[in-house]
Design a protein around this nucleic acid. Structure first.
Lengths: 135, 135
DNA sequence: TAAATAGTCCACAAACTTGGTAGGCTATCA
DNA sequence: TGATAGCCTACCAAGTTTGTGGACTATTTA
C-alpha cells in the first residue's frame, strides 16, 4: 500500500500540474486545498525539489512549481522516490534489488511469479505521467 | 513489499506442499529446513490453521499439514491473510476497502490508475496456487 | 535599509508496525 | 503417566510513519 506521504505527494503534484505555468504556488495554498498537514507537506515538497521534480522561489510571490511539464513526470518515479520499491520482493526489484537469503533465485516459484507481478505493474506506472492523473 | 512474515509463510507452505500426503510435518523441521525463527513460524502456522489453510495434529507423530491440495490454495488468499491488501490504495481494494478522505473517487486519476494496477496484479495472483510455486 | 514574506533546516516525538522471544497450558500417544 | 508437540498469552526492542515546533535564510517591496 502507498503511505499517506505518497498519497499527499500525488495530491500536491496533481494540484501543481493543474497550475502548471501559472507561477509559484504557496505551500499553504496546497495544504489548505488538499487538506494536508502543512509541516508534513513542507518536507515532502522539499524532497521532491531535491529530486529535481519541483523547483521553488522564496519571498513574496514565491512558492513551488513543477520543473517539467506534467507529461514528463512518470508516476513510477514518484512512487519509487516517496514510497520505495514497486516490486513485492527485494530479489525482484530493479531499483532496490537485494539478494534473497536462503533462497535460490534460479529455483524459486515465488520469485518467478513476483517478476510477472512486477512487470504487469511497471507496464502501467512507467507509462503514466502526472498528466494522466488529471481528470 | 511483502513482509518477512509473508515470505516465511510462503516458504513454509511451499515445504508443506512438497510433503503433501506424507503426514504431519514438525514445526521444528520446517523451521530448520527453511531457516525460519521457530517461535515466529509457530505463530504463522497457527494463523494459517485458523484461516483453514492448514490443519495440525498434537502429540507424537503430530505436526502441520495442508488441509487441501496445493492446487486449491490461491496465492492471493495467502497474501491477503498474512500481508494484507493487494491494492496500492484503500479506496481501490476489494477486500480491505476504505473510502478516501477528501478525494472524490469519481474524479480521481490516481484512483483510476490504481484500479488498473490492482487488476493486473490480481490477474496473476488469483490464478496461481501453491502448486505453481513448486519448481 | 527595514519589514514582511515564504521556503529551508534541524530536532524531536507519539503511535504503530515489524520481527521477534519467553514461558506456561493442553491435547495426544505409547 | 510421562514424553511429545502444538496452543496461547504476554511481552519487547527497533524501526517506520506521521507528524510538530522553532529558528534560520533568501527574496521582495515599501
Amino acid at each position: 500500500m502507498l503511505s499517506m506521504k505518497s498519497q499527499y505527494a500525488f495530491k500536491a503534484l496533481t494540484y501543481l500540474s493543474e497550475k502548471f505555468n501559472e507561477g509559484p504556488v504557496l505551500i499553504s495554498e496546497i495544504a489548505a486545498k488538499k487538506k494536508i498537514p502543512i509541516k508534513f507537506l513542507e518536507s515532502i515538497l522539499l524532497e521532491l525539489k531535491k529530486a529535481d521534480i519541483l523547483d521553488s522561489k522564496k519571498g513574496k510571490g514565491g512558492g513551488y512549481f513543477l520543473k517539467q511539464k506534467p507529461e514528463k513526470v512518470k508516476v513510477s518515479t514518484i512512487i519509487r522516490l516517496i514510497n520505495g520499491p514497486i516490486a513485492m520482493l527485494p530479489c525482484v526489484s530493479l531499483y532496490f534489488y537485494e539478494r534473497c537469503k536462503n533462497c535460490n533465485e534460479k529455483h524459486c516459484g515465488l520469485h518467478d511469479m513476483m517478476i510477472q507481478v512486477r512487470d504487469a505493474t511497471l507496464n502501467i506506472v512507467e507509462n503514466r505521467t502526472l498528466k494522466d492523473l488529471l481528470v
